[in-house]
Design a binder for these strands. Structure first.
Lengths: 201, 201, 201, 201
DNA sequence: CATGAATGAGTTTTCATTCAT
DNA sequence: TATGAATGAAAACTCATTCAT
């Protein structure tokens, strides 16, 4: 068991290279082959490191997938929150959210797929579930606020969020199939449609 | 390799018992633990058969998951198609579809989860992909017809369908979490919202 | 464990059919795939009987191979002995032996291969080894007699027999390859050569 | 599937130790128990390595037996060819060949038994069959040359070789039984007898 | 620090044998 | 008496993890 594992935010660079390479390789392979379907030696090879090296950065395979989940879900949350302006046109606000989701899915398609696929895996630990919880709460609060201001359709906010996020996941899945690119036009079109899911009428 | 594998549609009953027990156990465990995360002996135990028995009914584990996928996706397609009336009020038609999706997900929650989770797994074979294709084509044709009749929003039908199905998947996922039941009220509420995704305005 | 197993020399025929079919199938498959390489269900299929039926005639797979070995080695010994005339021209006597070996190998090529291949297998039991012993003793006595009468080369009779039998086995193996038939000409030619192995000069 | 399997001709020593240990153990056990009769864990134990280690050196059990066959048959061919002088007394030449066969069988009795036993096993691959072919061609050419020079008996060279090699195999089998040692006297005696198989008269 | 060869526990799969029919 | 579906013990093989270098 490594005594002091190199942290991701190390200052010196170089130390972190391998950790990042491992995480990147894991992201790809876990999406492609699944967690249990990915052998550590293969992962090591894809990352360009020795198999043993992985265990210098992560306690074991399970820890690795949990770190991966936590980091990316956090990153997604941060991304969605960034540039969020509380007041303003409700539709513009929604479209902003939809665009940020799209940005993220377009920029990190594998990471978005990873998050989506692993959202309820048996090997996710308490920490990962907590990140998950906070993410959902954030979303729910967003909806509740908009409902409180009379902008959004009434109803259980979790349900509304499930529909909106689900719709986006459907779009992202389809674009992952390679038969659709997330162009600005597609994003506008789908965002406009999704807006109707939530808007009060 | 079994020479003549017992078929599902056996006449005499009893022949099919074990096959069905294996499929049921696999459904549960593949959802719970994933395909690679499910060991065959565990599967056998859950099905109440010997480990070797599984190989009398399925060539190997991969064949098993593919049969499972094919059968359930087919069942879903049949279910969605059943009671579909071509002409009629567009919204009523949509709500009918949404209700049938809900029926299915409520009646077979594990199967619906299974289908949703495995939709693009590396171990699905050509036959499974074909079932998948036909399913999508069916959906696309439905959307196209409605668009042609001027009832639905214009735009790529696959995108519209991705949004609608995604929204429903989001709902189903959330209900699987145990914090929401798919009551008629929830179904009406969500269906009304989802209808807005597609309706022309 | 069958109480009274049907014997090979049953009078009524019919009873023996299956036993014979099993032995025939086993002969072929043990030569083709080896003893451990032959699965009992395959054997059953080739014999045209149910897998369980094999256990009505033989205690287990090992007993089967031992019966097979014993019966065929005995049959070979009987065949070689038949028509053996103690006095007479030594070369004619040798050629008679060589011809009878050839007859046997030509008439029962699979059985001859089986005997040859299994001559020292780990799963042969005491009874089979005893048959083996008697066979060798018979051969040795034949050689010793001929030596005593001054017709054969001096030297360890087992060695002489090993050379002669080995030479024939070499021939039989080659003919099994399909590139040579054991025609009367080939038998005469090889017998003449083999005769030189043993003849006194 | 190992990516880069350690090769036999490694420079640094030590690399090859385990590979050699595995091959040696396999040689013994395949002769003793047969290919299908030898379980990999037993093989590993005999070789003093972990079961998994075998798969670092050989793709599977079948590859192992094929490498074994190829290496030893090649070694036998090389040994028989070594010190072969084209011109010279025909009998001396034959006796030289017989002695080299004996040397080999005496020095590597298990390997000789292995080669002999596996000469036509179902699991030998194309490469092994090719080695086999080349070996036979070599033998045939040797006989043909001697025939062309009028030293050997006329007749199909493959048949003559089958008789000679068969005779030697008979001798080797018998000596393996433990009741005969391949002493120089036995080799001379048997060689003299075998010479009569082929010599022209 | 980094490695990758080595491992044995655990996986998938096979198969000799049994037994209900 | 004959069967072949069912089985679990044992086979072949994989892989997460360790550790000597």
């Amino acid at each position: 068991m490594p005594d002091a594992m190199p942290k991701p935010s190390a200052t010196g660079r170089g130390t972190t290279d391998k950790r990042a390479a491992i995480l990147d390789a894991a992201l790809e392979l876990f999406v492609e082959l699944g967690f249990h379907g990915t052998a550590v030696p293969l992962l090591a090879k894809r990352a360009g490191v020795g198999a043993g090296t992985i265990y210098r950065y992560f306690e074991n395979k399970e820890a690795l997938v949990n770190v991966l989940y936590g980091e990316w879900k956090e990153k997604l949350a941060t991304h969605l929150l960034s540039g969020f302006s509380p007041g303003g046109e409700p539709k513009a606000q929604f479209m902003g959210l939809w665009r940020r989701m799209s940005d993220f899915a377009a920029q990190y398609p594998t990471a978005y797929a990873f998050i989506e696929i692993h959202h309820h895996a048996a090997y996710l630990d308490a920490a990962a579930h907590e990140v998950e919880q906070r993410y959902l709460q954030m979303a729910v609060m967003y909806i509740q606020n908009a409902q409180a201001e009379g902008k959004y359709r009434d109803g259980p906010p979790e349900v509304l969020w499930s529909l909106v996020e689900g719709a986006f996941i459907g779009l992202a899945r389809f674009s992952r199939g390679g038969r659709l690119e997330l162009t600005p036009e597609v994003i506008e079109f789908s965002g406009n449609a999704a807006w109707e899911l939530v808007r009060r009428r």
